[in-house]
């Protein structure tokens, strides 16, 4: 069938874009080898290939130990937020939804605030930083509260009630967080830095922390691509087509939330990606989830890796938060795309 071939071409294009982003991400940054030597060295490091690229072992260390974890983490975070955003938008049939809708971000923020205000004195001496774990637990707990509240009032069949419950729970969590910050002004800076999101200082152990969640979550979401297409005709008609709407929505939401909570706890709240990347993919490649999910995964990964590059170069006086960069690059591009598409159609 022709569509299958076109799907494959899109996937290859998405993969190529991601590869380019990874190479660019690995090749740029203060210090380290000349940028043009890095792609060659990356090839050189592949098994069975060996030639001299003039990159010293020390320079390679900068690439592999400092840049690469950051690139990979950026890819995981961007990809996860985008595929989760696409799934949330599909399952709630609402284009304004992002993966933070049901409280994953607000919960993580609250958890981080609590950990940083109350717990600092206690946990400062711990060998492992407990902030991500606490943020993760709070993110999941918050979404669970939203789901319980929504299900109690609208039944799990109604997506709208769930969205409204999310609005209420998010406000509540944010209010709590603000209250805590008010009482502990000394940690405001630290909390804000956490909230604004960052990939700097990423290590391979950060990557290892989120990989399992991102992989499991993405696989589950990808397996529900067809269900997400059925959801496009509305909950009622989806039910007459044989989809158990409540249960399927729960599975998709749990998977998307798990992945989102994991990446948010490690990298903070990087906004914009989960909302806009799926839309850009829809505008370029069409709205069917068979393409939308994998392309969002790859496109979101590539986008965040690239968005992290200017932030790394502009490090004086302080590194620009990645969330600021994503909005700076993404918003105008999105408006441009909307405009050209509208003119074209």
């Amino acid at each position: 069938m022709d569509t299958a071939r076109r799907d494959r071409i899109w996937l290859i294009a998405g993969g190529a874009f991601l590869l380019v982003a990874v190479v660019v991400g690995a090749s740029t940054g203060p210090a380290g080898p000349d940028w043009w030597r890095v792609p060659a060295e990356l090839v050189n490091r592949l098994p069975l290939i060996a030639f001299d690229t003039g990159v010293s072992e020390a320079e390679w260390k900068i690439v592999w130990q400092i840049r690469m974890p950051r690139v990979v983490l950026g890819g995981l975070v961007g990809g996860m937020l985008s595929i989760a955003g696409a799934s949330y938008q599909g399952v709630f049939r609402n284009p304004l939804v992002d993966p933070y809708l049901l409280g994953a971000a607000a919960g993580a923020g609250l958890g981080a605030t609590i950990a940083l205000t109350i717990g600092r004195g206690v946990t400062a001496s711990w060998p492992v930083d407990p902030v991500p774990t606490i943020a993760f637990v709070f993110a999941l707990a918050t979404v669970m509260v939203t789901y319980t509240v929504g299900a109690a009032f609208g039944g799990s069949r109604s997506g709208v009630t769930l969205v409204l419950a999310g609005v209420a729970v998010v406000s509540f969590a944010t209010a709590l967080q603000t209250f805590l910050l008010q009482r502990n002004l000394e940690v405001i800076r630290e909390v804000f830095q956490w909230i604004l999101g960052r990939l700097s200082g990423a290590t391979w152990s950060d990557v290892r922390l989120v990989v399992p969640y991102v992989v499991v979550s993405s696989i589950v979401l990808m397996l529900h691509r067809r269900h997400l297409d059925v959801f496009r005709v509305g909950d009622e008609e989806a039910a007459t087509l044989g989809v158990s709407v409540g249960r399927t929505r729960l599975v998709i939401v749990v998977a998307a939330t798990l992945g989102t909570a994991a990446v948010v706890s490690v990298s903070g709240l990087i906004g914009f990606v989960g909302l806009v990347v799926p839309h850009v993919v829809r505008l370029i490649a069409g709205a069917g989830h068979r393409r939308l999910l994998p392309l969002s995964l790859m496109g979101g990964a590539a986008f965040l890796i690239l968005a992290d590059v200017p932030g790394r170069m502009l490090t004086r006086p302080a590194e620009t938060p990645i969330g600021v960069v994503t909005a700076f690059i993404g918003a105008p591009f999105f408006i441009y795309l909307l405009r050209t598409r509208k003119v074209a159609s």
Binding site: D229, V233, E236, A287
Partner: peptide, 13 residues
């Protein structure tokens, strides 16, 4: 199989 009186039509499909 059921054809509703007012089906929800996804425009971009």
């Amino acid at each position: 199989a059921y054809v509703p009186q007012q089906p929800l039509i996804p425009d971009d499909m």
